[in-house]
Amino acid sequence: MATLHQLNILVHIAFGTLALLVGLAPMLTAKGGPAHLRTGRWFLGLATVVLVTAVLGLAVFNFRPFLTVIVMLSVYQAYSGYRVLRTHATGPTLSDGVFSAVFLLGAGAFLVLLPRIALVWSPVVMYSTLGTLLAMTVYDLSRFGWLSRWRRGAWLYEHIWKMMSTYSALLSAFTGTVLGAYKPYSQFLPSVLGSAVAMGFMLYTYRRR
């Protein structure tokens, strides 16, 4: 079991490093162009391996509440950000609503249990991460009430935000673990930077439309 755990960690680190490097390409290439779409798919594929190994590590080998919260947010952002592209013409489906509801309940349950859990990461990071997940799931469920406006263009800004958030979540997990001596700054500054970059891309897109 120890050998499998070490192998899982090695795969997680290797693919996480590749995801952080490859993830820069969609940011730097023309949005919607062939290179952007191709490298975006590569990033999602790498991120999927990172998240699957993270789930395996937490569920089978070593459960850590603080990393579980980060993984929950990353999984939700990556999948829902991908689904935006698949459903932007028709709007989110019932399965998308169920997916959001499940994560909303999971985040709510974690929020209730958090005071009983010994926190390794800063409480500010934990509560803000859960708050972000709760806000995102509530927003996604609200889309069913304004589908026509969402299809006209809001989906694009949502895609930008979620994919940048996926990248910054991976970066936060990396820096928060590797640069542990600089907590909590190494935990939340990548997310702050990612949010600023996402808003910059959204503003740029708005001005070009």
Rank of each mutant, 00 (worst) to 15 (best):
L7H: 09
N8A: 08
N8S: 11
I9N: 03
H12P: 04
A14Q: 07
T17H: 05
L18H: 10
L20Y: 09
L24M: 11
M27D: 02
A30C: 00
K31N: 12
G32A: 12
A35Q: 07
A35Y: 09
V50C: 05
V50K: 05
V52G: 04
T53I: 09
A54I: 12
V55Q: 03
G57N: 09
L58F: 08
A59E: 14
N62Q: 15
V71M: 05
V71Y: 08
S74Y: 07
S74E: 10
Y76D: 02
Y76C: 02
Y76G: 00
R83E: 05
R86P: 00
P92V: 05
P92M: 02
G97H: 09
A101P: 04
V102Q: 06
F103E: 02
L104K: 01
G106R: 01
G106F: 01
A107I: 04
F110R: 00
P115Y: 05
I117V: 15
W121V: 11
W121I: 09
S122A: 11
V124A: 10
V125A: 05
Y127R: 13
S128A: 13
L130W: 01
G131V: 05
T132D: 05
A135L: 15
M136G: 02
Y139E: 09
S142D: 07
S142I: 14
W150V: 06
I160C: 01
W161G: 08
S165N: 07
Y167Q: 00
Y167A: 01
L170Y: 08
G176I: 06
L179S: 00
A181R: 12
P184A: 01
Q187L: 08
L189P: 00
P190R: 04
S191H: 07
L193S: 02
S195R: 03
A196D: 04
L203M: 09
L203N: 03
R208Y: 11
R209F: 13
